[in-house]
Design a protein around this nucleic acid. Structure first.
Lengths: 113, 113
DNA sequence: TAAGAGTATTCATATGTTTGCATGTTTGTC
DNA sequence: GACAAACATGCAAACATATGAATACTCTTA
């Protein structure tokens, strides 16, 4: 499997609004470049550049049919990642227990600030 | 809940090796700044800067005890995210079904390239 | 109140990212 | 073979991020 370092690089590649949109669409099925141009309001070269970023990271790959390139998902982490991005979460985690301990000492659970 | 855009910003904040390490430690419990210095091989100001990035994104918060600041996790998405980063995955997703369709046309399932 | 521990901020610099624009490549059609 | 469609690449400008170094802040203790 990928190392943690590689996974973090993948995270950086995904963490862009346009690329998340691209991946959301690819979760539904195969798409060619012109298909992306329809719903992303950016230029064709820009679409290509974002696809290139995802390709280099091994997130997506493509078939060739004539002059079309048909992109599809390759990395199985992507559906899980997109799922998390859209999942409902509680506002906050429960506060830490009343007397947390670190190397430097023991602390009251109260919020001072 | 957070908007998708905010979630993507959060993703960018998390997608750094040092900050992932910080969050992994915070999953185990409360830590003060000097605790991080011990296992991250970077300077104290640099630790503070990374903590600052996570704070501004609402990922973490802190208690104050005297001159110590005791950091803890706030955003419930973090444990799930870290879990995914370390989960085992198959090498690749199954190839797309034999005749995918896009707006521009229908394609053979064969790989040309 | 002076000193020191623990942490944050500011600044300068180096490096990386994003985008638009122009151009290049490949494939299919006439 | 000329031309057009579909897509990629190269380059430069604008902008963002990462890091080290210096400094400032805040709280505690003597």
């Amino acid at each position: 499997m990928r190392s943690l370092g590689k996974r973090i690089e993948l995270l950086r590649a995904v963490a862009h609004p346009v690329r998340v949109r691209i991946l959301q669409e690819l979760c539904k099925g195969v798409k060619c470049v012109a298909d992306f141009e329809d719903f992303l309001e950016i230029s064709q070269p820009n679409v290509s550049q974002h696809l290139s970023v995802l390709r280099k990271e091994g997130v997506i790959d493509f078939y060739v049919d004539g002059r079309l390139k048909c992109y599809f998902l390759v990395d199985p982490i992507i559906p899980d990642l997109l799922d998390i991005l859209q999942r409902e979460y509680a506002e906050q985690l429960p506060a830490p227990s009343c007397c947390p301990v670190t190397k430097k000492g023991t602390y009251p659970g109260r919020r001072h600030r």
